[in-house]
């Protein structure tokens, strides 16, 4: 499904990602881990169209997606969440989730204009907001929510477009442990339901171990390990990168 080969992202003289290759298959949750500055987020940004890689190829379902804008990617089923969540003034939780849904292509603009969207609101609430514990906050402006809730909104927003590939950039960073496991559990549920592929950048190892089918470890812009979570923990190179010699 997702095939990245030799992806390199340079900022001037700094090589943020240097020759990263990865394959992600449908229905798989891949944890992308590594120390700070390893290039995880940069790699996600390159896949999701925020950066254009200096070198290398990225294809999604055999289509070359290098240089595609985020809106074009959204239409072919690539969605993502952000490490830092936006603080928007006026849009409510439901509004943001609806924007997320609309980027997938089919616009319901005219129907909404004529008929309103009450029934639609209820369906979205039940499907996405209830499981994430956001149902009571659906009419709150985003900036009134706690950090954890905003993170959950970002995930709901990305899921609303029913992506086939979901890129999660530190979905549970800074979220209380109980909430973190609930979020991760929901990601797993969605994967089971939609059969989408998930790439998850995360530092919380217990969440990664319990959620991901496979772990890819990055260090200094390169992939140094690709395999199961247990194997990653005992791998000599991974231990060296994390713990030092």
């Amino acid at each position: 499904m997702l095939k990245a080969r030799d992806v390199t992202v340079r900022f001037g003289g700094v090589v943020a990602v240097g020759g990263m290759s990865i394959d992600v298959h449908a229905g798989e949750i891949v944890g992308l881990i590594g120390p700070n500055g390893a290039g995880k987020t940069t790699f996600i940004n390159a896949v999701s169209g925020t950066y254009v890689p200096t070198q290398g190829t990225i294809s999604w379902r055999d289509e070359d997606i290098v240089g595609h804008s985020p809106s074009r990617l959204a239409r072919i089923g690539v969605g993502r969440t952000f490490q830092n969540v936006a603080s928007l003034n006026d849009l409510t939780v439901l509004d943001v989730v609806k924007v997320g849904r609309s980027v997938h292509g089919h616009s319901r603009g005219l129907r909404e204009f004529l008929c309103g969207s009450r029934a639609d609101d209820e369906a979205l609430t039940e499907r996405l907001l209830e499981p994430l514990g956001l149902a009571d906050h659906r009419h709150s402006p985003l900036q009134m929510l706690s950090y954890g809730h905003r993170k959950a909104v970002d995930i709901a927003r990305a899921l609303a477009s029913e992506p086939d590939l979901l890129l999660l950039d530190e979905p549970v960073a800074g979220v209380a442990p109980a909430e973190a496991f609930a979020l991760a559990g929901f990601v797993k549920q969605v994967r089971d339901l939609l059969g989408c592929a998930v790439v998850m950048v995360e530092h919380k190892m217990d969440v990664v171990m319990s959620t991901c089918d496979r772990v890819v470890v990055m260090a200094e812009g390169c992939k140094i390990f690709d395999g199961s979570g247990e194997a990653a923990q005992s791998d000599a190179e991974v231990r060296r990168v994390y713990l030092g010699d």
């Binding site: 928007l88 849009l91 924007v99 849904r101 980027v103 927003r157």
Partner: peptide, 26 residues
């Protein structure tokens, strides 16, 4: 009514943050 459609919500999103809007795939 326009402001309560997908297009209207995108207007507000772009006003609040163009970068966020772009990142969300708008």
């Amino acid at each position: 009514r326009l402001l309560r459609t997908d297009l209207g919500r995108r207007f507000i999103l772009i006003r609040d943050s163009e970068i966020v809007a772009r990142g969300m795939g708008v």
